[in-house]
Design a protein around this nucleic acid. Structure first.
Lengths: 226, 226
DNA sequence: TTCGACAAGTTGTTCAACAATCGAGCCGAA
DNA sequence: TTCGGCTCGATTGTTGAACAACTTGTCGAA
């Protein structure tokens, strides 16, 4: 399987692209493909073929690598190359460590109570479950938890959560997909939101911690298997 | 004042430097100087003179810029150049928004209770206050709050806090230094630590929120003045 | 088999060139 | 004078080629 088959024809058309964002453009291109699983965890991103496919120079590509490395999407090993990050068990633990602080904190202390996006995410999750769509459930679940952190109103925490969720996708991609993994959590989310809206914030936070612990445990177990 | 006077002779000596880290080296060089206030907020980092001073090529310098931009230490304006970030009032609010979630969360839910570093930071703060050293008090205070987040045991949250504190230093550098700003907070920190060690975690978290609100208010006021 | 020298392939870094953009200063019209 | 548009110089954005340094695998000698 050549890189061309995985990433056909990403060369940007010369029209309507601005000067001064090629590096970011290349980064977003790769980020997309990695997030979609087309570039699997562990895959090596060799400079020369990628330059060819993206239609950018090596120097520009390296700027893109620097950006992605800062997001932990990609791992740079000096003199060896750049690889799509393959999360370790420790990475999984770290991801959930972060989430167990961020999400309960958001539920407990956020001043905003705009929960429309949360309800929408839960609804989308139910629809996906009915339709039997695993990616749909996964994405809806991510939206819900991103939405919880968005309650903080902080761009930085949002960004941190976005990055952590991007790494979660890498975790999923590096393991066998279990269709049953996401489905029970939809009701968990609903319960959390219910408590939150009832003003029982610490109860909501507790449910969240409980959810996160169970999810971590399941993921670690699946990771050990793979 | 030329760049040479501000950053004399940073060119790295050819001996004992490894291949494959020049970009990171340049980034850390600049980070240091910015953190120390030698490169003030708003200062333009022109490529050519900086290449000269650092002894690296433009491409490598640009990799360093990408790194620093990811840390919000530096702001890139397309086709205009790279500048040391000059925090706005909104930035200050955002910084404290992050801190008001991170630090109370650490106090409330961290599993570690290793408070040696916190005691040490408070002691250093008292020494600095006796010695009348404003930078000493500032640095001790930062150490204390970094230490609180370190209780989470999470590298990511640590890193986030490190970045936020780096931006705090930019805030200080872009305003007139008020010698009285830091001194009262040493006792606040002591009170917080006392509650935490007594197991009264929510009380500690409340004190922390209170401290952060007061600090934010003072900084915003000082910022409006400047 | 084991070890080390060597060769090939990649990454790290530099350099020089050109394209695109910005901003200052100049000029002329109202 | 003041305003708008213009040109021009300086700086940034991007490229391609070149070379240095490192990694890996191979081959042959002991």
């Amino acid at each position: 399987m050549t890189l061309y088959e995985i990433l056909p024809d990403l060369r940007r058309q010369s029209v309507d692209v601005r000067h001064a964002e090629t590096g970011l453009w290349a980064a977003s291109m790769l980020r997309e493909r990695i997030s979609a699983g087309q570039l699997a965890p562990g895959a090596k991103l060799s400079e020369e073929p990628l330059c060819e496919v993206l239609g950018v120079s090596r120097n520009t590509l390296r700027e893109a690598f620097a950006t992605l490395a800062g997001e932990h999407v990609v791992t740079r090993i000096p003199n060896r190359g750049v690889f799509v990050t393959r999360p370790t068990a420790d990475d999984i633990r770290e991801i959930y460590r972060v989430r167990r602080f961020l999400e309960p904190a958001a539920l407990t202390w956020s001043t905003s109570a705009k929960t429309d996006a949360l309800h929408a995410a839960i609804a989308r999750g139910r629809d996906a479950r009915s339709a039997g769509s695993v990616p749909g459930m996964a994405s809806a679940n991510q939206d819900f938890h991103a939405g919880v952190v968005a309650l903080t109103g902080s761009n930085r925490l949002d960004l941190q959560m976005t990055q952590v969720l991007a790494e979660m996708r890498l975790v999923f991609h590096s393991m066998v997909a279990n269709p049953l993994f996401h489905s029970p959590y939809i009701d968990d989310n609903d319960g959390i939101l219910e408590r939150f809206e009832a003003g029982e914030r610490s109860a909501a936070a507790e449910l969240m911690v409980d959810y996160l612990r169970r999810a971590e445990e399941q993921l670690l177990e699946a990771h050990a298997r793979s």
